[in-house]
Amino acid sequence: MPLTSATAHTITTAHGPLRYYRAGNTGPAVILLHGAMLDTAPLVWGAAIPALQDGYRVFALDWPRHGGSRPWHGPTGQAGLEEAVAELMDHCGLASARLVGLSLGGGIAAGFAARNPDRVERLVLVAPGGMEGRRVAQGSTYLYLRTPGLLRLTTALFAHSPALIRVSLRAALVEGADHPDFAEIVALAEQEMRSKREAGELVMDDWQISSYGWRRMRTDLRPLLRHIACPTLVVRGDRDSVVPLSAVEETARLIPGADLLRVPDAGHLLPRDRPEEFHAALRAFL
């Protein structure tokens, strides 16, 4: 659903613009952090923002080089994206907030919470990235990411093949093309791909690319998790094909006092796959 009830704002930073969407006037501050590749705040949180705005002050950030946060000339690894969260909070006068992050956004939220325990009141990690020492096809993925031209070729394929975007989104949603918001989600992803092409960006994020080493993941946040001091909920859809259940279970074990929630019949894009179940769990926890 379009974000008709949210207002778009832009922060001018030393590295470029940061776009965020704002909704709700009362209650605790909640910051929503989306995932990688073609994700944007409207695509991932388009249903969550209206569901939360009557009881929370909601801030949904477009990561650098996503949505309205371009052109961007600063770092976009773990430290750079954590800095973007701090920029948003400082700009909006938020001494602390409740963070909700999906995939890449979950990894950034976890790292930020571990390093800034006084600024995070509650934490929701939805199939968070950066929680594994080694991934399936580790070596071959590393070679793919570092072979000249292959990432550019992949980007060109997505840019010139809208059908490829539709196929990937159909696979990402449990209901596929029968999802009631499928046309809207596809349109937002296609728009994001056009923006990447016009900006000369790759379809994959720097965070994803830099995370892979030859034998081990270079981004492994697990040693930091014991420093997270706030109440934490870790969530995963039972049909998630991106982040394995073992990684999510370990994440919940390593965070002191964390709860684990498994949502039936939901994939990696859980906030869109099962919005009613997700929003109910979110509101109960936040």
Rank of each mutant, 00 (worst) to 15 (best):
Y212D: 01
R57E: 14
I209A: 00
A110R: 11
D39I: 08
R253L: 07
W72I: 04
P50I: 13
H227L: 08
R170G: 03
E277A: 11
K196G: 00
W45Q: 02
D54H: 14
R57I: 12
D62M: 01
G35V: 07
A199Y: 07
G213M: 00
L150I: 07
L3Q: 12
L202H: 01
V186M: 05
A266C: 08
P275E: 02
A183M: 04
I49K: 05
F59E: 12
T154E: 12
S168I: 10
D273H: 10
L52Y: 13
G105E: 11
R166T: 04
A187E: 13
I228W: 01
M217Y: 06
T13V: 04
P17V: 00
A159N: 12
F285C: 05
G257R: 11
A229S: 12
H160R: 13
G24D: 13
L269W: 15
S161H: 09
Q191Y: 10
I11H: 01
T26A: 06
V30H: 07
T232H: 11
A23E: 03
S161A: 10
L61S: 00
R122N: 08
G105K: 09
D178G: 02
R197Q: 14
G129F: 08
A60S: 07
P2L: 15
H91D: 02
R22M: 08
P64N: 09
H66D: 12
A156D: 02
V85A: 05
R222F: 03
L104N: 07
G74L: 11
A8H: 06
A171I: 06
A95F: 10
P42S: 09
V263G: 03
L125G: 02
L150Q: 11
R19H: 10
L151F: 00
G133D: 14
Y142H: 15
D220A: 02
Y20P: 01
S241V: 13
V242M: 08
G111E: 04
L254Q: 08
Y56F: 14
I228P: 02
P71Y: 09
T141Y: 04
R283I: 15
L157K: 08
L3S: 11
S195Y: 06
A51N: 14
R152A: 15
P128T: 04
R65C: 15
A23Y: 05
L99I: 10
L261N: 06
L94I: 12
I49G: 06
D39C: 11
S140T: 11
G55S: 15
Q191E: 14
V124E: 09
V30A: 08
L32F: 09
H268G: 10
E192F: 00
R98V: 10
V44P: 01
L173Q: 03
E83G: 07
P162R: 01
I209H: 01
H73E: 05
R218I: 02
V235G: 04
S211I: 08
R146H: 15
L94G: 11
I228K: 02
L224G: 12
G111A: 10
L157H: 04
G130N: 03
V248F: 05
R115P: 00
G133Y: 12
Y142D: 15
R119L: 10
G16H: 00
L61D: 00
T10P: 00
A79I: 03
D62H: 01
L286Y: 09
L153E: 07
D54P: 04
P75Q: 15
L94P: 07
F285W: 09
F59M: 14
A109W: 03
S103F: 11
D206G: 00
G27W: 05
D54I: 12
